[in-house]
Each structure stands twice: as C-alpha cells, then as structure tokens.
Amino acid sequence: MTLRVNGKVVTPTGVIRQGCVEIDGDRIRAVAEYPSVRDGHWIVPGFVDMHTHGGGGHTFTTGDPDAARQAAAFHLRHGTTTLLASLVSSPYELMRAATVAFAPLVREGVLAGLHFEGPYLATARCGAQNPEHLRDPSTAELTELIRLGDGAVRMVTLAPERAGALEAIRLLTGERVVAAIGHTDAGHEQTRAAIAAGASVGTHLFNGMRPVHHREPGPVVALLAAPNVVCELIPDGVHLHDGMLTFATSVAGPERTALVTDAMAAAGMPDGGYELGGQAVTVADGVARLDRDGAIAGSTLTMDAALRHAVAAGIALPDACRMAATTPARAIGLGDRVGALRAGLRADLVVLDDDLNVLRVMRGGTWLD
C-alpha cells in the first residue's frame, strides 16, 4: 500500500512547493509535483547527526546500551533519524566495552555507528576532553576496535600532529572508517598531509583547533580548501558566531558543510549539573561548560534547533536541509541509504510548520507518534 505525504517538499535540488512523497514500505517510491496540494507543511529529509554525545538526560559516553537507546530516542523525536554515538577520550577498556555494547544497537538500526572523538587528540586543544586520557594513536587499538565492532565503528577523530597519526589515518580509511581531524594544534602542511593520507572530515570546524593566522593558516583553511573534506559546524550561536557559520558555508558550500549538534546529556533538560567523560559540567542558560576551567562542554542543541538557527543566520532552507541530512549522510558513507527525499532511499522525513518546528517524524516508513 502506497502512503503519500503532501506539502512543500525539500529535495537535494530545491523545493517542490506543491509536492508529494510516495512511500512503499520503508522506502521512498517517488517524489513528484502534486498540483492539488495547497499550502502544505514543509517536508524535509530526516536529519543525520554525525556528532552527538547524548541527550534527554542520557549519554553515549559511558558505553551503556540502555542509555544509548534512550538518547537516540530523544533525538529521534527532534527529527534525527540517523545518528552516530560519539564517545569522548577514554581509557581503551571503555572504548572496547562501548564497542561491544553498541554493536548490537548498530545492527538493530538504533545507531548508525560509533564515533570515537579521541583519545588521540592534542593536549593544547583538548577543550572539554579529559587530558588524562589523551595519547598517541595506536593502530593496535584501532584494529581491535574495528574487529570487535564488525562494521559498527564508523568515524574516529584524531590530531594529525601526534606520532603515528598518518599511519592510523591510512589504517582507518583502508577499513572504510572515516578519519576526522579535530582537537588539533596542527599546522597547515600537517593538516594537508593528513588529508592526503585519507582524512575526510573536519570535526566541529574552528572549535578545538589552532586559529587562523595570516602567516600560518592552520587546520581551518586546509580543511575548508580540501575538495574531499566535509566540515562539521555547530550552529548554536555559542560555538560559532553566525558570521563564521555563514562564512564557512559560503566557502565550502552546503555540499561540504554538515550541521552537527555535539550534544551532551543535557540537551532537552533543565539547567544544572551534569557530567561528560567523567568531568563535572554545569549548564547555565542552555550553555554547557566544564567546572574545572569553563571550557564549552558540548552543546544542548538538537538538529531541529540547528536547522532553525542556520536558516535564521541566513542560510537558505534547501541548503540548510542538505547540511543537516544529505551532506552528513554522504560524509559517513550512508548517502546511498539515507539523507535525502529521493526514490529508493529509506523513507525518513520530518514534517515542519512554517516556523520550522517539528510536527511529525517518519523513520523507515513508520510515523513516530
């Protein structure tokens, strides 16, 4: 039986203002103009968040599968139909345990994979990462995690200036795991070398990176300039000034910039005390900061709020939708399955009102009610 969802349909090529998404089972059968539609809601692709640590009071960072299931359910209610569970810098034992615990959730489809943000990061740019756990990349550790995950490990963020980083990047890309550059004090040429080795994502561009200087462009310029690199952007008005958000988007284009939340457990929760990777965090006025030094500790963002913020900053809705779904899906190797309203892809969509608030969410052809 074919299900039809009518409205203003946002596709990878633009908006069909009198449109219809036809769904057969869990797949999109067709996207077409439907002249009888009048003033429908916005129909946009289900969001793809390639960088989130938790939400709704639940975290991915402890490796608890029940907490992971609850965090994924929280973000699903906000339109995120595909996400990576991001961990923070941890001892290897926790990385291993989390891989074993989350792999069944990946097979079940609750998670799209794991993202290890660290521990192979620069101490000078650790941000909210626990400096006690930072260390040089280990190909032995990575090889074991990839084996244990059996396809669950999808992305690893590392600093290219650390000893062994280029070898680790080559290992990851050879195993079809995305190598991302982040929390780095690398220079321009070091970053370019990492990109040449196969790194294809810039983790929350600008944040946790050596800043741009006119005599040493650093990692930001190298990542923005590389045609094969997707740059994550956190559009919450805290991590990035809106001018930097729109500047980066204008340089790399929506096909190479991805909106991410970098959310932690406090997303959707009241202000107060929380933790991230074993470190105390206080959320005040919706902004999460470490107690020890005031560093920004992830965000309280959701992807629907990220979309609204990007559009309010001046990014056109079709471009913002591409940045919230199509580009991140491609960046993590899932562009042939999800991330766009296109025939043959999984039927993931979000119905928004004219203020871009979520009205309904569909995942795999089934409405979330």
Score class of each variant (00 low, 15 high):
L76Y: 08
R38S: 15
V10A: 12
G113V: 02
E33C: 05
G364W: 05
V21E: 05
P131K: 08
A101W: 10
N228L: 04
P160V: 02
D262G: 02
L94K: 12
N357G: 14
V281C: 12
T184S: 15
V260I: 15
T282P: 02
A32H: 14
M323Y: 00
G46S: 09
G54A: 08
I195P: 07
G109I: 05
A295W: 06
D348C: 04
L76F: 09
R96K: 12
E232H: 01
D271M: 03
T81L: 04
R125H: 13
H41F: 07
V350D: 03
S250H: 07
T257A: 11
V44R: 04
D291C: 09
L172G: 01
R308F: 09
P160C: 01
A320S: 06
V110W: 06
G164S: 09
A295I: 03
G164V: 12
G151Q: 06
A324G: 10
M155L: 12
A168P: 03
D24F: 11
T261K: 03
R363E: 15
R330Q: 14
R170H: 10
A266P: 04
V358I: 03
P65F: 12
M269T: 08
M95P: 01
L111C: 09
D354R: 12
G25K: 13
G286A: 01
G7D: 09
L205H: 05
H309P: 02
I43K: 03
I195L: 09
V358P: 06
V287G: 10
V212W: 13
H133C: 03
A258D: 03
H58P: 00
T99Q: 06
S89Y: 04
R346F: 13
E161T: 06
E144L: 13
H133Q: 13
G164I: 13
V361P: 04
P65R: 07
T82S: 15
L148A: 11
L94H: 07
D354T: 06
D150I: 05
A226N: 07
A101G: 06
Q18R: 14
V260F: 04
